[in-house]
Design a protein around this nucleic acid. Structure first.
Lengths: 127, 127
DNA sequence: CAGGATCCTGCCTGATACTG
DNA sequence: CAGTATCAGGCAGGATCCTG
């Protein structure tokens, strides 16, 4: 294991930008509540309309869906395609960079599955 | 890809405990600000004392270090060993379950590294 | 040395309502 | 249909001081 780098915690607009830990950086980008549920849905359903995302990502509000999509777009993980029709139609899909997250997410998901089994038997564990 | 499961967002103490998405669950456990920096340090430095963690995980406060360690312990990712000496000595190390996170974190870190390169060239991207 | 306790704050998040 | 605008609340996280 050679993760012997400095792993300072900071934010993307800090001046330590280039020396910061890639792991922390990844979490800053996709660690919020709705980013991964959205991307997770797009992995299996490419070219999804706004309204479908709204329906399928259970519990998300317009505000958070819009905001999350915009941020994902800003990081070039999601691409937005607008068709100038009436009524308007907008589709979202993952970019190659976005799809590159899949292996990592699968690993995490696997781990989460095991962890879920473990925690279930002991119960009473907080965040 | 067979991640075609329901991926509702919820919390560990919800009643939908067993049907929730393993990925989201994983993030709830290790997604907070300091959990991964701590574990990341422990990967390379097993059996670390409290004070060393405090010094090496830059910027963390007593409160957040204590809280994070307790939660990690509650999920059986970290083990705490207390020596009844004077002055007291406490060492922390990863459990097997904790170490099982490494592959996932390496993938994420790799992705973060690529993403960092990409974002640096375009600048001005928020969370 | 290894924490606890307390107070405080920002921003993440949700609810509701409105528009091109 | 695909969003914006506005308001309000809660909680993760920070700062500071205290103790077995």
């Amino acid at each position: 294991m050679n993760n012997d780098m400095d792993c300072n915690v900071g934010f993307a607009n800090d001046s330590i930008y280039e020396t910061k830990c890639p792991l922390i950086y990844a979490l800053e980008i996709i660690g919020q509540k709705w980013k991964l549920p959205i991307m997770w849905y797009l992995f299996d359903n490419d070219f999804t309309r706004y309204s479908e995302l709204k329906r399928k990502v259970k519990g998300i509000t317009n505000m958070m869906l819009t905001k999350s999509l915009k941020e994902l777009e800003g990081h070039n993980l999601v691409v937005r395609m607008q068709y100038e029709t009436i009524p308007p139609k907008v589709e979202y899909s993952l970019t190659e960079r976005g799809k590159a997250l899949l292996p990592a997410l699968k690993e995490l998901s696997l781990w989460g599955e095991e962890q879920l089994k473990h925690d279930k038997s002991k119960s009473n564990v907080s965040p």
